[in-house]
Nucleic acid binder design. Structure first.
Lengths: 156, 156
DNA sequence: TTGACATGGTTTCATTTGTAACTAATTTAA
DNA sequence: TTAAATTAGTTACAAATGAAACCATGTCAA
C-alpha cells in the first residue's frame, strides 16, 4: 500500500483552491485588471493616478492629505500620483497662502477632459462586471465584502 | 448662486467610494494583509513562496509548470518562489531523468515542518475573516465573487 | 539526420510599491 | 521668543512584479 499519497486528516484540511484568501486574490486580480485596462490603455495612467483623478473629479480642490483620506492610498503613492499627473498636464497645484506646507490640487482643463472621457468607460466596465447579478445580489456581495473587511481590520 | 459646487447629472454618476472595483481593492488588501502577516512574520515568506508551499504540501512532487497551473501564478513568479524556498532550505529539486528540462520539486523535511506550522494558523485567520457570516452567506459570497470573476474573464 | 518549432525554466530590465528617513513650514509650550 | 514637537509632502532605498528575451532540452517533419 502506498502511504505516500494518502493525506492525513490534518493535511486534508488545507486546500489552496478553496482557501478563502486565495479566492479573494484571484477575484481581485480579475476585477482590477479589467478596469485598469481602460485607463492604462487610453491615457497611460497608473492605478494611483486614476484614483487621484477620480477623487478630485472636475470640481474638487483638495490637498494631498485630503486625497489620502478619501482614496485609501498612502501619502507616498498620492505624492507620486500627483507628480505623474502634473507631468502629464492633468493636474495643477497652488500653494496655500495661509499654510505654505499645503498645496491645493485640482484637475486642469485637459485633466477634466480625461476624467469625462474615462468615467463612462469605467462605469461601463463596472456594469459588465456585475452583469447577471440582480440588484439584491449586488447589495449582498458588497455587504458581505464589507463584513469580511471589518473582520480583517479587527485582526490588525 | 455658486455653480462651482453643483454637480451635473453626468458627473454625479461617478463616486469613487461606491465604485465597485474600488471596493474590491480595499477588501482584497484587508484580507490579503491579514494572511500574509502570518507567513511573513513567522518565516519571512513572500506570497509566491507561501503559495508554492501550499500547492506542494507535504506529499506532492510537482514540476514548476504544474505549480503554475495550480496556483494561478505565472512561471516567473513560480521560478522565483522556488529559488527563495531552495535558499531557505524548504524545497528540494530533482532533475527528471527522462526529460532533463523538467525538475521535480518537493518540500524538504524542514519545509514540511513549516507547512505544518503554518496551515493551522492561516486557517484560523481564514475563520476569523469569515466570522459572523453564516454558512449560507459564505457560500453566497464565494458564489458571487466567482460570478463577477467570470464576467471579468469574459471581458479580456 | 538536421533544421524548425515547442517546452521548461531562468535571467534581465523596467516599473511599481512599501518603508523609512528626510526637508520645510507651522504650532506648541516653556 | 525660541526650542521641541507636529504636520505636509518628498526623496531614497529596497523589495516585489511583469514583460520580454533568453538558454537548454526535447520533439517533429522533411
Amino acid at each position: 500500500m502506498n502511504t505516500e499519497n494518502l493525506k492525513s486528516d490534518t493535511d486534508a484540511e488545507f486546500d489552496l483552491p478553496r482557501f478563502f484568501p486565495y479566492l479573494v486574490r484571484v477575484y481581485y486580480r480579475a476585477v482590477s485588471e479589467s478596469v485598469s485596462a481602460v485607463y492604462a490603455s487610453l491615457y497611460n495612467l497608473t492605478v494611483s493616478e486614476w484614483r487621484t483623478m477620480a477623487v478630485l473629479g472636475p470640481y474638487c480642490a483638495l490637498s494631498a492629505s485630503e486625497i489620502v483620506e478619501r482614496s485609501s492610498m498612502d501619502k507616498v503613492n498620492v505624492s507620486r500620483a500627483i507628480k505623474g499627473l502634473r507631468n502629464a498636464g492633468f493636474l495643477k497645484r497652488d500653494i496655500d497662502g495661509d499654510d505654505r506646507r499645503r498645496a491645493v490640487l485640482r484637475l486642469t482643463e485637459s485633466g477634466i477632459d480625461v476624467f469625462h472621457s474615462l468615467t463612462p468607460k469605467v462605469s461601463e466596465v463596472e456594469q459588465q462586471l456585475l452583469e447577471g447579478l440582480s440588484e439584491k445580489e449586488r447589495q449582498t456581495l458588497i455587504y458581505l465584502m464589507e463584513k469580511v473587511q471589518q473582520n480583517a481590520e479587527r485582526l490588525k
